Amino acid sequence: MSSSKSKSQPSEQEIKQQFQQFQTELQGMASKIGELEQDSDEHSLVLTTLNEVLTEEPDRKCFRLIGGVLVERTVKDIVPTLQTNRDGMQKLIAQLAEQYRSKEKLFDSFKTEYNIRPAKA
Rank of each mutant, 00 (worst) to 15 (best):
residue 61 K to C: 05
residue 72 E to W: 11
residue 74 T to Y: 00
residue 95 Q to L: 04
residue 98 E to F: 08
residue 90 Q to F: 06
residue 51 N to S: 13
residue 57 E to S: 01
residue 63 F to D: 09
residue 73 R to H: 09
residue 36 L to C: 04
residue 19 F to Y: 15
residue 48 T to C: 08
residue 50 L to E: 00
residue 24 T to Y: 13
residue 104 E to W: 07
residue 9 Q to S: 14
residue 39 D to R: 15
residue 21 Q to R: 15
residue 59 D to Y: 04
residue 73 R to N: 11
residue 41 D to M: 10
residue 12 E to D: 09
residue 99 Q to A: 15
residue 13 Q to I: 13
residue 59 D to F: 03
residue 24 T to K: 14
residue 13 Q to L: 13
residue 103 K to R: 15
residue 31 S to N: 14
residue 58 P to Y: 05
residue 58 P to N: 07
residue 21 Q to S: 14
residue 57 E to M: 08
residue 109 S to Y: 07
residue 63 F to R: 13
residue 51 N to P: 04
residue 56 E to D: 09
residue 82 L to F: 06
residue 44 S to V: 05
residue 94 A to N: 02
residue 70 L to W: 06
residue 18 Q to Y: 05
residue 107 F to S: 02
residue 60 R to E: 07
residue 33 I to W: 02
residue 34 G to T: 10
residue 29 M to S: 03
residue 34 G to D: 10
residue 23 Q to S: 14
residue 13 Q to F: 11
residue 92 L to K: 04
residue 82 L to H: 04
residue 42 E to Q: 15
residue 59 D to W: 01
residue 61 K to N: 10
residue 31 S to I: 01
residue 22 F to M: 11
residue 38 Q to A: 15
residue 52 E to M: 15
residue 44 S to A: 10
residue 107 F to E: 00
residue 99 Q to C: 10
residue 59 D to M: 03
residue 44 S to I: 06
residue 100 Y to W: 05
residue 28 G to E: 10
residue 56 E to Q: 11
residue 28 G to T: 13
residue 54 L to D: 00
residue 92 L to G: 00
residue 64 R to K: 10
residue 20 Q to F: 15
residue 65 L to E: 06
residue 103 K to A: 05
residue 96 L to Y: 04
residue 103 K to M: 12
residue 17 Q to R: 09
residue 68 G to T: 10
residue 81 T to D: 12
residue 46 V to N: 10
residue 83 Q to C: 03
residue 102 S to L: 11
residue 14 E to C: 03
